[in-house]
């Protein structure tokens, strides 16, 4: 198995490895997701109908508001949430929400990572080493 590793500038949480869901548009927990099922529900979203359940959610940017702070905790409780988050740039809400839910989150990832990763790839987040890797 080969892996390509990328450095990240900001990171917190445990190490996790899972299948990726790569959003080509900025991510918002309130605008994009049905938070009871973990399925992307926004009508004009390129990934409409895709589940983030037990996957690593990846996007270059984020948008929207404070709902994400509770959304990750709530989705984890329902067993429908992502298991990790990777953003090019993020806002505090995503980080606060991830920390409350015990999810790993990294940001400040090299742009090349987003060119290298696709939905369905296996990705590993290692916050302690400040790394994210495309494993296969």
């Amino acid at each position: 198995m080969t892996s390509t590793t990328f450095a990240v500038r900001q990171a917190t949480g445990p190490t996790v490895e899972a299948e990726a869901v790569v959003s080509p548009v900025p991510f918002s927990a309130r605008y994009d997701l049905d938070r009871t099922t973990g399925v992307i529900s926004r009508g004009d979203h390129p990934l409409l109908g895709t589940s983030v359940r037990d996957r690593i959610l990846i996007a270059r940017g984020v948008q929207g508001g404070v709902a994400a702070g509770w959304a990750f905790l709530s989705m984890r409780d329902l067993g429908v949430g992502p298991c990790g988050l990777v953003f090019g740039a993020t806002n505090p809400v995503m980080v606060q929400g991830a920390v409350t839910a015990g999810l790993p989150i990294v940001a400040g990832v090299d742009d090349a990572f987003f060119d290298a990763v696709s939905t369905g790839d296996v990705v590993r987040i290692d916050p302690a080493r400040r790394e994210v890797a495309v494993v296969s």
């Binding site: 404070v66 709902a67 509770w70 905790l73 709530s74 409780d77 329902l78």
Partner: peptide, 16 residues
């Protein structure tokens, strides 16, 4: 000032 209600935090928020 904070946001918190059943619609956004679910049962997990109530437990929290």
């Amino acid at each position: 000032h904070f946001m918190g209600d059943r619609e956004v935090f679910g049962q997990a928020g109530l437990d929290y």
